[in-house]
Nucleic acid binder design. Structure first.
Lengths: 114, 114
DNA sequence: TTCTATAGTTCAATAATACGGAACTAAGCG
DNA sequence: CGCTTAGTTCCGTATTATTGAACTATAGAA
């Protein structure tokens, strides 16, 4: 990246911000996948794992939104960027919130949605 | 209203839709207030109780978004419209989700947010 | 170091949403 | 019907989102 990545302080994270970041099905899917990937995951892997034909720029924007909402931290690892969910910090700030959202997301996606 | 109000079937309600509807601080506040008002609440009362200088059209739009996301049901009561949260239906579809979101919202608003 | 490939970011133009004033519609009352 | 209250709809403006193209960063090869 040109500029260093900015991550908000956990105390500056807001509920509305989190909900907005997760109000996009793609971003919900990304966070869900990230939680299952302790080693972190980059854009390319994301596109592959979610089976989405998504342009690089779009993926980059989704990650930026997740980052600025305080949901993930990203760091460079050689050529690519690795992101992971700020799970423990978020759990302290808003106990149970993320888990509850993802639980509902899984219920919704585990069956034909209707 | 001109057209009859449309409410989605509970099975058509999505997590992303709910999160989007609640990603606006005003709508989060509305839902929070509605849950404390079993008799329902209309736009004017909402503006008063939330102490927001909000135009009628804006309030109407917020209610429409909450309605279309499946969060509330609205019905006419004489001159005004009364809305209430579809609490039990939502609880069945996405157990704990709404409660968890509002719990976090309350935590955030109970102190200076940082 | 220079070249090349890989991974993301930024820019800019277009598309989709949101905000809010003004005009319109519905319901109740006299 | 005329008046008042409560919301909705229309529509111009403003903000935000999408994405192809160009640019930057890093690692490895020559």
């Amino acid at each position: 990246m040109a500029r260093p990545l900015t991550h908000p302080h956990i105390d500056a994270v807001t509920v509305a911000g989190i909900l907005h970041a997760l109000s996009d099905p793609v971003r919900l899917g990304i966070v869900n996948k990230l939680l299952k990937s302790p080693a972190g995951m980059n854009c390319t892997q994301t596109t592959l794992k979610l089976k989405l034909a998504m342009p690089k720029s779009t993926c980059s924007q989704h990650y930026r939104i997740l980052r600025e909402a305080g949901l993930i931290v990203s760091e460079r690892r050689g050529v690519d960027l690795s992101s992971r969910v700020r799970a423990s910090e978020l759990e302290t700030r808003f106990p149970g919130l993320l888990a509850s959202i993802l639980k509902s997301y899984k219920k919704e996606t585990s069956r034909p949605a209707r």
